[in-house]
């Protein structure tokens, strides 16, 4: 891990020095021991702020959409899951590929803050993290803690298909050779098997809690429309009131706009302040697109686009 950090800082310093990039977006130490926060480095003197540890959960690709008008190239540090977002942005013509310098870090899995917080005192500052195989030794200013990796791993990392970034101009760290765990959508199947009443009860209780902060939209590398349907007032596509009906309209529409485009980075789920399992909607759409139209995981190749923007004559027929 130390080697990766050194490598990362070196690469960032070199990019900034040689003017190959004007800014490097990466992770820096956060307010608590097991948190990180995004940092924007513009000078080679500041590269020491960059870190890499198993708590770099934030996806940084959406910042490319915000910074696309900035002069010069933008370097961004990505994990495997975030790297699919790069292809999402370039396929959607949000940012040209040659404006982005991708620094890829192979990632064995990230740790969940909520799970860690239930097992240790997270209020200190992080001094060091040591990978002990099965366990993780976290040295903080409030003491040292050992946690079992399998107990604190993020749920999305359990079925990770891309431990190594799908796109990277510079790779720091060693390639991870664990074979990808193919997602067989066990959880989605469980929800599909529920009765209509059960499904309705579950989802209405989820939609009811939404506070319409639009964090899920703002973090999403697929949600980059200049004029968003949820902001539009004329026409008033989606009511702005917070009630279960308008919330449901919002969630179904948001999910559907991502149908066949969602790169399944799981960021919407993570940022939701009300813990609405947004990813369950996205996953369902991914599963259907895969089953009905043989879709590749979106964002895993440079070419591609929206599955619903294409068609085949031999698509399944149900409406006859």
């Amino acid at each position: 891990m130390k080697k990766v950090i050194e490598n990362l800082r070196e690469t960032a310093a070199r990019l900034l020095q040689n003017k190959e990039a004007e800014v490097v977006i990466g992770w820096g130490l956060g307010s608590e021991a097991v948190r990180t926060q995004p940092v924007f480095i513009t000078s080679p003197d500041n590269v020491d702020k960059l870190v890499w540890n198993p708590f770099c959960v934030n996806g940084l690709t959406k910042y490319l959409s915000d910074l696309k008008t900035r002069p010069g190239k933008i370097a961004v540090v990505v994990k495997g899951c975030d790297s699919r977002g790069i292809y999402r942005l370039t396929q959607d013509n949000i940012i040209p590929r040659d404006k982005v310098v991708v620094i890829g870090i192979p990632c064995a899995g990230q740790m969940s803050y909520t799970k860690l917080a239930s097992k240790m005192d997270v209020s200190g500052q992080l001094n060091d993290v040591e990978d002990k195989g099965e366990d993780l030794l976290i040295k903080t200013s409030k003491g040292d803690f050992t946690v079992k990796k399998s107990e604190v791993l993020l749920d999305k990392c359990l079925t990770c298909e891309h431990h190594n970034p799908v796109v990277a101009d510079h790779v720091v760290g060693d390639t991870i050779n664990t074979c990808p765990t193919p997602d067989n959508y066990e959880e989605i199947k469980k929800f599909e098997a529920m009765s209509t009443e059960e499904k309705a009860r579950f989802w209405l209780s989820q939609f009811e809690r939404c506070i319409r902060c639009y964090a899920c939209r703002n973090i999403c590398p697929g949600c980059t429309c200049r004029e968003c349907i949820f902001d539009a007032i004329k026409p008033d596509w989606v009511g702005k009131e917070i009630n279960v009906s308008e919330n449901e309209l919002f969630h179904l529409t948001r999910a559907f706009h991502l149908a066949g485009r969602c790169v399944d980075c799981g960021e919407c789920d993570r940022v939701c302040p009300m813990d609405i399992p947004i990813r369950l909607l996205n996953k369902k759409l991914l599963k259907d697109c895969k089953e009905l139209f043989n879709m590749e995981p979106p964002g895993s190749t440079e070419e591609g686009g929206s599955v619903l923007g294409q068609y085949r004559l031999e698509d399944p027929e149900e409406f006859m």
Binding site: T196, A200, L252, K284, D288, D315
Partner: peptide
């Protein structure tokens, strides 16, 4: 095809 399945998925 997709939308019908999504509607049924949410109940």
């Amino acid at each position: 095809l997709i939308f019908k399945r999504l509607l049924e998925y949410v109940g």
